[in-house]
């Protein structure tokens, strides 16, 4: 599914070049569950942005299903993000003025789905995540765990191939963290999606099939374990 070949990503910070990724090569297969772990500022999120087509590498290739994401135009990348990738963010990133249902519907806007169909899918997904009774609530009226579940619903409503989660439990207490990780794991199993989680939390990383450690802009895969399907 993913093939990263000598990927480098440099940032210019006031004249200083920061090497966020410095020659990363990595393969991620279909239905993999990969945890990316590492200290703060070592390039975990940068790697996720490249996997999600949110940014382009300075050099190297990020190949997804045979397409070099760095070579795609903005329109194609947007289409790919709409269809193939689902994102879950640490701070949930829900639109504060839209209800839970509308936030989930927002992910279907690029598909030009009719309003009734959009609503049906959104409610169905929220129900799957146990949030049917919170559909008309604004994000501010929901707990952190509920907000993250809405964010996960938004990511899943379009049946993506890949779910990319950036510190999905970073803003949650332990109980909620476990609940969310269990939910992601269940979805990975039930839906057959590829799950990539960026986390600095070892207890979360241990749930993954593989753990990729990033340090100094380089990746090393530390663990590979077969999880029961």
């Amino acid at each position: 599914m993913y093939q990263l070949i000598d990927v480098r990503k440099y940032f210019d910070r006031g004249g200083n070049v920061v090497r966020a990724l410095d020659g990363v090569s990595l393969a991620i297969g279909e239905n993999d569950f990969l945890a990316i772990q590492g200290p703060t500022g070592q390039g975990k999120t940068t790697l996720l942005t490249l996997l999600g087509g949110l940014d382009r590498p300075s050099s190297g290739q990020v190949i997804f299903d045979g397409r070099d994401l760095g070579a795609l135009g903005e329109g194609d990348l947007a289409e790919l993000r709409a269809e193939a990738f689902g994102f879950v963010f640490q701070t949930f990133n829900l639109i504060p003025t839209l209800t839970a249902k509308e936030n989930v519907e927002a992910a279907l806007v690029p598909f030009r789905t009719g309003k009734a169909e959009r609503t049906r899918k959104a409610l169905e997904t929220l129900d799957e995540l146990g949030l049917a009774d919170r559909a008309t609530h604004l994000p501010g009226e929901l707990s952190g765990g509920q907000q993250q579940r809405v964010a996960i619903a938004r990511a899943l409503v379009k049946d993506p191939k890949v779910l990319l989660a950036d510190e999905p439990t970073g803003n949650l207490d332990e109980d909620t963290r476990d609940e969310i990780v269990a939910l992601l794991e269940r979805l990975w199993r039930d839906r057959g999606i590829t799950l990539v989680i960026v986390t600095h939390d070892s207890s979360v990383a241990r749930r993954a099939q593989r753990i990729a450690i990033i340090k100094g802009g380089r990746v090393s895969v530390r663990k590979e374990q077969a999880l029961a399907r």
Partner: peptide, 11 residues
């Protein structure tokens, strides 16, 4: 976020 979930710039 909207761009990340697939909204085009023009939208």
């Amino acid at each position: 976020t909207l761009k990340a979930i697939g909204w085009r710039t023009r939208r």
